[in-house]
Design a protein around this nucleic acid. Sequence first.
DNA 1: GTCTATAATGAGATAGAC
DNA 2: GTCTATCTCATTATAGAC
Lengths: 222, 222
Amino acid sequence: MTEKVHENQRQRAPSQRSLATRDRIFDAAEHLFADRGFEGASIRDIARAAGVQGALVSHHGGSKEALFATVVTRRAQELARLRQDALAQAKAEGPLTLRRILTCFIAPFIDKTLNGGAAWSAYGRLIAHVSSDVRWQHIAQSCFDPTVRVFLAEIAAILPESSQQKISTHFVFMVSAMLSLCTSRWRIAGLADSDPPQDAAGDLAADLTAHLLAFCEAGFRS
Amino acid sequence: MTEKVHENQRQRAPSQRSLATRDRIFDAAEHLFADRGFEGASIRDIARAAGVQGALVSHHGGSKEALFATVVTRRAQELARLRQDALAQAKAEGPLTLRRILTCFIAPFIDKTLNGGAAWSAYGRLIAHVSSDVRWQHIAQSCFDPTVRVFLAEIAAILPESSQQKISTHFVFMVSAMLSLCTSRWRIAGLADSDPPQDAAGDLAADLTAHLLAFCEAGFRS
DNA sequence: GTCTATAATGAGATAGAC
DNA sequence: GTCTATCTCATTATAGAC
């Protein structure tokens, strides 16, 4: 079999260089969409940040909407896997508690977005846009709802007296609070009249995760 | 004293018609900024929605940024007054509890944004943009932080063992959950596999307020 | 796969008539 | 206070050379 393939089959795999360029474009798009929203980030901005020409952004990302969806989807799979792996491990280690279920959902996200580097930090803010704008409902449904439904079912088993409506409402409260750690830490710092807590005092992500978990577990049990 | 004034004094009061036009422009801007964000809403869209020419939007609103700030500020004063009046009345009626403090903050907002008509509904979503984007920090500080600090002080008096950092963090969690009722009810409905609860069953705002209050009070006490 | 060049449209803002 | 007209620049997207 030669390197040549039938015309209706896929072309040969993209080169290393092409893949690297594509990832630079997606990283730049992720960062700018996160910071300035869908309309606030222009293709030109993204191209400049990635160090390429505008036409190349369209080549790799398609239309601007397709690029947005691609960038959101890109890390969603890894995040879903982290969460479901954590849940599977928690199940293997003993009977599930509400706290353990919520931890499996929140801890991977906070760990990545606060300790996972600039790209994951931007991704957290990007998801906040998706979660608060009905225009991206289709993305939320395909990227996040399947995993969320798994967690909702586990919570419902722990809290049999709570209606599905109530559990779903509380879950959205929890997600909103979680995302506020990506979008609104400036607000917390401003209200606390203190500098944002430095890593000097320890693991910021662990502290915030514990805070958030305590808040939400109590809320679910209310 | 004639109608003529010194050139460096203010001109005569605007006409009724001018005020009505200005309000139509601000209402249109509020709605479009809320739905599509700052960059997503164009001056031209706003002019068309208000039924005026583009130049008139600039005339009444100044630059686009100034227009955005004006529209956010416009209802902030009324909201602050509603919240502080509720707090004053609660104080007059007896010793404050955590639940009563949180109610004074949340209930006026939910009542207006869910039962106060389309303009207040849009305003709720608009505030969600301000709260989640550090670019609008100066607006949040001037419009909302003064009232928030009053409530933080009352909460601190009820929860003397909680640090200011913890109370501020929990307060931001609460505000995020509250705003999710303006931005993400579609998400709750999608996850609950049920139509969004209809008003037929009663007062939607009252039900959601009670839900949210229970969740957040338990969180604060965690 | 990457570039240059450009098409086609829309953006924010303002000058000046009425 | 409101409108028409226009300036200047940015926008997304694509065609076509290499």
